[in-house]
Amino acid sequence: MKKLLVLLVLILHFQVESQALSVELNYSFCVNSQFDKAVRVYNSARPFLTSKQPLFRNGIGAKIGYSFPSKKHPKVLYGFELGYSYFDSYAENDGFINDMQLHNLTPRFFTSTKITNRIIGQIMLGLPSYGVFRQINSAAVTNDETPIRAFGIGLSIRSQLSYQFTLNERISLCPTFGLEYCPFQYSPQGEALINQTKGLYTNNFNSFFGVDFGLKVRFLRERK
């Protein structure tokens, strides 16, 4: 954390043009083909569970970003952001509590431009990473006394639109809408963790699609 803060201070100090820091909170909707299938198989294979396990669909997230303008085209910004989102799948059946959490951390590089005076469009490339954790009755699911965790990585492309309300010369508020597609996701332990099988049905290579709505606060820092 300390290193990250030092890095941010350095970036702000050395960039000669106007720069911006942004913080965003958002709602996320996710369709992850592998984890969805694992949950569906889990539910289909266990008719005795009357409360079905929900899919990892609705989550919350946060992003921090940094942007700076292009020297040649001041209307074009470049930057990077770090996004985190969290999804939960919880079901209780007569005291049998199955709780699964999907964490997603994605560093992204982006370029953005003003479409109109207030609307900003962004295109991003991301490197999403995933971690899925599971507990049954509050105890981590283990194999050979080691907790089973499903980690994954991928490559994504994202587009985002935001509408800028300028509060003052330094701060603006931007409702955002983003779409993200990851055609490539590798997560070899998803089936093992969620359905407790390996090699029964899923491919380790999958895709995901995400939509999010958020509210971003953008802090502008002008050149001295």
């Binding site: 007569d94 005291g95 194999n143």
Partner: peptide
Amino acid sequence: HGNNSILADLVKKSK
């Protein structure tokens, strides 16, 4: 054999 399977889940659910 093992605590992670359809039947193990049924064991837990059926107590």
